[in-house]
Write a protein that binds this DNA or RNA. Structure first.
Length: 257
DNA sequence: ATGGCATTTAAAAAATGA
């Protein structure tokens, strides 16, 4: 079973790229972030024609998350929001049971500039995620928490870490919150399978970042203990980042036995 | 120290991203 995450940076602007990638990689599950579309503008019919059904939570202009699955898989939405802040109206979280696995698809707040209200929101959001992740330790199914975490976990995960020291993605508070969520329960699947490899999932649109491979690793998979030994493979579909009209993120996937 | 790019909304230029 192949599970992917892909920050598409506008599902409609990226539709041809998304469909080509689905056709090529054929993930069983694809978690999407940054739909940048209201629910009614989600391109359900094109995605269905490509062999997938979907559940999603959109929002005007910004954010928005979706879980795509191949048509034969069973899907049951558990939640379309992250509990803990009733006034939060940003569409950044969706959770669904897919074929006996709980899939949590998230788009964690960027948090810049630092300091400021946005950084405070990011840290509150991570505290809420920590609470939910702790609850899910007792869930009756295996769990995968995946998406755009907007956190660079370690120095190895940035082309030039010194450029990021004042950035919300690499601030000690953000990294500590990520480590706290992960704890000794969840496994960072990409890093687990490739302990010493330089792996990036995002490259700036400007500064010629992609040709220079000036990237960062911010799209992650946290898997529950029963899945850790079932991890067969993990990779970034890096070549997709070079396609026309592509996102600044590349798709990332793991394969589970 | 700054801007470089891409997208949305909406009709020019601002906001957002990471």
């Amino acid at each position: 079973m192949k599970i992917a995450t892909y920050n598409v940076n506008s599902v409609n602007a990226r539709l041809p790229v998304l469909l080509d990638w689905l056709k090529e990689t054929q993930p069983d599950v694809a978690c999407l972030q940054e739909l940048k579309a209201v629910d009614e503008k989600f391109p359900m019919e094109d995605i269905y024609a490509a062999g997938y059904k979907a559940v999603w939570k959109g929002q005007k202009s910004w954010n928005g998350v979706a879980i795509l699955t191949k048509k034969q898989h069973s899907v049951k939405v558990i939640s379309k929001e992250l509990p803990g802040e009733a006034s939060d109206e940003q569409s950044r979280y969706i959770e669904a049971e897919v074929n006996g696995i709980l899939i949590c698809c998230l788009y964690l707040p960027n948090g810049n500039p630092v300091p400021g209200e946005k950084f405070d929101y990011k840290l509150r959001w991570m505290e809420r995620l920590n609470t939910r992740a702790n609850e899910l330790k007792h869930y009756h199914l295996p769990v995968i928490i995946t998406g755009d975490f907007n956190v660079i976990p370690q120095e190895i995960d940035a082309f030039k870490p010194e450029n990021w020291i004042n950035d919300a993605l690499f601030k000690p508070e953000s990294r500590a919150a990520f480590e706290k969520i992960k704890g000794d329960y969840w496994t960072d699947a990409i890093r687990h399978l490739h302990p010493n490899e330089v792996i990036y999932t995002y490259w700036d649109f400007f500064k010629g970042a992609f040709p220079r491979n000036a990237g960062i690793r911010i799209d992650h998979f946290l898997v529950s203990p029963s899945l850790k030994d079932k991890l067969k493979a993990a990779a970034v579909d890096k070549h997709v980042r070079s396609w026309e009209k592509t996102s600044d993120h590349a798709p990332v996937w793991i394969e589970i036995e």
